[in-house]
Each structure stands twice: as structure tokens, then as C-alpha cells.
Design a protein around this nucleic acid. Structure first.
Lengths: 192, 192
DNA sequence: ATTAAATGAATGAACGTTCATTTTTATATT
DNA sequence: AATATAAAAATGAACGTTCATTCATTTAAT
């Protein structure tokens, strides 16, 4: 196990603080001074780790997005049957959004607003390639509807974000039973 | 035909400007001075129509949300068969999001961020009641899955917002054929 | 003793909001 | 119809605050 350098600890603290504050107040209503205070450093220190505020949130976005992707493809291998593979990935994503609430909420806020510039967004999109490949394979095998990957994503993955938001607001309580039902709906919508 | 008072024209101009600017820059990155300039009034004038900035976006939100709801239930009547009624409402919502892009984009941004305070959000939620009633009827008749209305919404309505965002970013081009396919996916996910 | 890391007060730009003043509109008087 | 007067609407410069960023100085590490 690597012992992280102190500087790396501070960087993580800053990222954690940014996520929390942006979740609660939004990007522009989150002053650098508060981020610094929450991370336990002084205002100027942020600029040793990040160029400026925009660079800070870009880096946070990319970091969280790739944590998400790592989580999404846990236990998944390319050789798998289409339905089995999809189920694993779907459940991973659901689990991430329920376990890592702060990070998931941050992502959904970024993905639905102009906070992140186009460069950061492109960077974040790449990572879902294995899922797109799986869908393509499923379409070749006649298992999955012949619609664009965006449409498949819209009906099978995107709804998870809504469920998470509702749970976050206390309007909904998700348990294993609910999640199984939701998975069935996702699969029913994309299967041929 | 009513001729709107001049003051009402200015109010509408301010609302239109707010939608456009918040869509492009986000709420906090949209100064009152720019809203005023785009609406063709001076900064101080805004405060004759709205208490303050928060009140402005709250009112914009409520106004756009109720325009959306009116659109959603066009040609719908309570006596209808469940599947027919759902199809009409679904297509209305899709049409709104494709025709009234600015307004739809504004709503999706508000619904995924802390811009709108809880009061405004509650106000906006009420309006979907007829759809919730229709779903309840469908569940009684054994036509629709026995899951919470949030879950039904997540899989059948919420995806439309994603498709619209992608079309807005040029990643996707929606035509009548696409939309029919998308409707099938929505129905497949919620039907029993 | 040298280098690197961190600090936090200072700076200047930008913002929301106010209000004394001006401009426009409506009403009354000749 | 023309003019005078009052009321309403609109203006935009000014105010106080907040913010991102900088940098001379201090503290810690090597």
C-alpha cells in the first residue's frame, strides 16, 4: 500500500470540499475561500494545486468521472454474454449512485449545466466505450433494439440518475427489491 | 384578442432574456445587468417587476413549467384508455421538448441544480397530477408495473430530456421515426 | 543554510440592489 | 385642441459587498 504524499492528501481534501460545496450551493455560489476553509488550507494554497477555479472543477469532474467508470466495469469482461454483461454494468452503476451519493450527485449536476467546458465533457464521455461496444454486439446478435447508443443510454442508464436524485431529496427510498424492478424496466426498454 | 399592456410586454422580455442567458451561462454567471440589456431595459427596471434575482428565476421557472404542463395535456381527456392516454401525453411532452427547446432546456437545468428553492419546486411538481392518476388507473387494470410513480417517470419521461440535450449539442438528430422508436421503449419499460 | 510549501492580507473587478433624477403617460383645466 | 399638472414608469450612476487571484512574508522540510 502506498503512503500518499502530504501534498496528495491536500489535493484530495480540496477535491472533496469542492464536491460537497458545489453539490449544496452550485459552482458559482461556492467561493474559493470556503473551499479552502473546508479543506483546512488557506485560500492561496489552492493555487499551488490548481491553475484557477475553472481548472479546479474540471479536474474534479474528470477525477470523479473516472472513478465512476472504474466502478461501472467492475467484474465485467468483454467476452460475456450480452444480457449478463449489461446486468453487471447496470447494477454497478446503480450501486455507485447509491453508495457514492456525493460523487454521483456532483456528476449529474455537471452533466446538466454549463459548468464544465466542452473539453472536460469530451474527456468524460470516452470512458463508457465498453458499454457501447457491448450494445453493438447485442444489436448484431438481434438482442437489442436498433437505435442509437444515445437512445439506449437515455432509457436504460439515465433513469438511474433520476431515481438517485429523488432518493437524495427523500421522495423515494431505494432497496434491493426496487432496484431489481428498475433493472427489469431498463432491460425491457432496450431488448428487442 | 387582448392587446397586452406595455408593462406585460416588458415582463415577458425579461423572462425571455433570463431563459436565454441562464441556459448559456447558468444562473449565477448571469448578471442582472446583462438580463436588463438583453431585454432592452435598464438595470433598475427589473426591480419594478421582480423583487430580486431569486424571485425573478422562481417566477420564470413557474411560468415555463406551467406552459410545459399545458402542452403536455393537450388533447388528453381523463376518460381515455390507459395506453392511448399515455401515448398522447408522451408525444406531447416530446413535441414540447423539441419545439420549445429554450424553455425545455431551462427546465432541465433547473430540475438538476439548486437554483430553484424548495417552494418553487413543489409548485412545479403539482402539475403532473393527471399523468400520475392515469398511471394509477393503469396499475389497477393490471396494465402498468407496480412501481412508484417516480420510477415510472424515470424510465418513461425523464429519458426524453436526455435525448433533447443530445440533440441540442448536435450529437443526435431526432425525426419522426426516432421518436416512434423512443415511444416504444418508454411504453415497453412501464407496461406489465 | 537552502529550498519548497503555505499563508492571508491586499487588490481590483464584478455584482445585486438602491434611489435621486428624468422621461413618459394620464388627467384636468382653459 | 392646447396647455398645465399630477402620477407612474424608467433610468443609470453610486454604494456596499463579495469574490478570484496575487504576492510579500512566514513556516516547514531537506
Amino acid at each position: 500500500m502506498n503512503i500518499p504524499a502530504k501534498s496528495e492528501i491536500k489535493r484530495k481534501d480540496l477535491i472533496r470540499a469542492t464536491i460537497q460545496l458545489v453539490n449544496n450551493n452550485g459552482f458559482h455560489a461556492t467561493p474559493m475561500s470556503k473551499i479552502a476553509k473546508m479543506a483546512g488550507v488557506s485560500a492561496g494554497t489552492i493555487y499551488l494545486y490548481f491553475e484557477n477555479k475553472q481548472d479546479l472543477v474540471n479536474q474534479v469532474y474528470i477525477e470523479v468521472k473516472s472513478a465512476f467508470t472504474r466502478y461501472a466495469f467492475k467484474n465485467y469482461e468483454e467476452g460475456m454474454e450480452v444480457e449478463e454483461g449489461f446486468k453487471i454494468i447496470w447494477k454497478n452503476i446503480a450501486e455507485f449512485k447509491l453508495q457514492e451519493v456525493e460523487e454521483a450527485f456532483f456528476l449529474s449536476q455537471c452533466d446538466n449545466s454549463p459548468i464544465i467546458d466542452e473539453a472536460g465533457r469530451q474527456e468524460g464521455l470516452k470512458h463508457l466505450q465498453p458499454l457501447l461496444d457491448l450494445w453493438k454486439k447485442g444489436q448484431k446478435q438481434g438482442l437489442i433494439k436498433e437505435v442509437s447508443p444515445y437512445t439506449l443510454y437515455a432509457f436504460s442508464i439515465y433513469p438511474i440518475a433520476f431515481l438517485m436524485n429523488m432518493q437524495q431529496r427523500g421522495s423515494l427510498r431505494l432497496n434491493a427489491h426496487n432496484i431489481d424492478a428498475a433493472y427489469e424496466m431498463a432491460w425491457n426498454s432496450i431488448k428487442k
